[in-house]
Amino acid sequence: MGPLLGLSRGIDALNGAVGKVCAVLCLAAALISAGNAFWRYLFRDSSNGLLEIQWYLFSAMFLGAAAYTLLKNEHVRVDVLYGGLSERKKLWLDLVCTVLFLVPFAGLMTYWCYEYLFLPAWLGNEQSSAPGGLVRWPVKLIPVVGFALLLLQAFSEIIKHIAALQGEIHIDTSYEKPVQ
């Protein structure tokens, strides 16, 4: 399990860094929004490019933070069932649900977003129809990257849960932060 736990730590570090970038993107989106509103009211002019970059940033924040949210165990969970389980049963439930639901979902979404969203936009050099709008392929790459990061984090969680079930690490199932 040692090399796999090392891989898990690397994935966790990657998604931890992406989560921090998402926080900065939130600030950037707010500043661009405020600046665009200020410019619009002051000069009665607006930029479609600035409006679209806000959407791009929101997309990056939302999809980039999904893996970070899983890393921090902040996804919504139905505590009616989960809260009454023992630590070991929580580990098993998380492991089984990650393998049966999250991995297939994130894997399919990564593939579909690449194949049917990003690739046509890239190959067709898709542009915004709005005057002053932006190129579309970067925003269509964001879901591919976001779901790929979520898939990687799912693998990291699987590794940590198997290690915890084998007694190699401890996961606090209320926060799922491994203690080594």
Rank of each mutant, 00 (worst) to 15 (best):
L5P: 06
S174A: 14
A65M: 05
I142P: 00
E87H: 13
N36I: 00
L141N: 01
I32R: 00
L165I: 12
E168D: 13
T173P: 01
G146F: 08
H170C: 08
L108W: 11
W112I: 07
A17I: 09
R44G: 10
V139Q: 08
A37I: 11
F155Y: 09
Y82R: 12
L102K: 00
Y68M: 00
Q54R: 13
L4S: 09
G124H: 09
V76E: 11
L14G: 08
P3R: 08
G10S: 14
G167H: 07
R88M: 06
K90W: 05
I53S: 10
S156P: 03
Q153H: 03
F101M: 03
N48G: 02
D94F: 08
F118K: 05
L93V: 14
Y111N: 01
I169W: 09
H170V: 15
C22Y: 04
F62C: 06
L42F: 06
I32V: 14
Y82I: 07
G35S: 12
S8P: 04
F155W: 10
G2N: 15
V145F: 10
S156C: 14
I53Y: 04
A17P: 00
C113Q: 12
L93Q: 10
S33K: 02
E52R: 04
I158N: 03
F105M: 02
G107C: 03
A30K: 06
V135L: 12
I162M: 14
L50Q: 04
G146D: 06
A67D: 02
S8Q: 15
A30E: 03
S129H: 09
G124F: 13
K177M: 08
